[in-house]
């Protein structure tokens, strides 16, 4: 089958690539676009190491074809730190030792970010189920869950401060 030409947006930047129709988005990101922060642990959607977002939804990039993402928006770990500043989740993963070997970390960060974007106040159980599609073999998940909890608290406090500032500006 002939290669497919795809125009898409990755981490806010317009990107074009050509790939064989059966090639996975994971292979495109890693091998064609050099985004090797997206990891391959299984290739069958069982480990979550290749997690990215597609139009804001969390997906395993190994279960998406490159040819499917024309006109879509993709976000990968490489785009998580903005303006040279780590995302609070990234900071807390380092601070709480939520990574040991680090191979699963990009996938966990993507999954945790989607969770907190939708649910700023998740319970421990909600965090554990939201991250159940991401395998980690080093940590026993303890410090990962704690890092996500710490980030949720931090982000909520940040939101409060922001809204207080807005209020005081209005008055």
């Amino acid at each position: 089958m002939a290669a497919v030409l795809v125009s898409t947006t990755i981490n806010g930047d317009a990107v074009e690539f050509a790939c064989p129709p059966q090639e996975s988005l994971l292979a495109v990101l890693r091998d064609r676009l050099g985004l090797t922060g997206v990891k391959e642990g299984c290739g069958t959607g069982d480990c979550g190491a290749c997690s990215v977002t597609l139009d804001g939804r969390l997906v395993c990039s190994c279960l998406v074809l490159g040819a499917e993402v024309d006109g879509r928006e993709i976000a990968t770990i490489e785009g998580m730190a903005e303006n040279g500043k780590l995302h609070p989740l990234q900071e807390n993963f380092i601070e709480h030792a939520a990574l040991q070997c680090g191979i699963c970390t990009p996938g966990f960060l993507m999954a945790a970010k989607v969770l907190l974007d939708r649910n700023p106040q998740p319970t421990e159980t909600e965090i554990r189920y939201a991250l159940a599609g991401n395998l980690c073999r080093c940590t026993g998940y303890d410090k990962i869950v704690r890092a996500v909890q710490a980030t949720a608290t931090e982000l909520r406090q940040l939101e409060k401060k922001k809204s207080r500032r807005k209020k005081s500006k209005k008055s």
Partner: peptide, 12 residues
Amino acid sequence: DGVDKVTGRAKY
């Protein structure tokens, strides 16, 4: 090596 590993820069 923390920053490299949370930003996807670490090379495996």
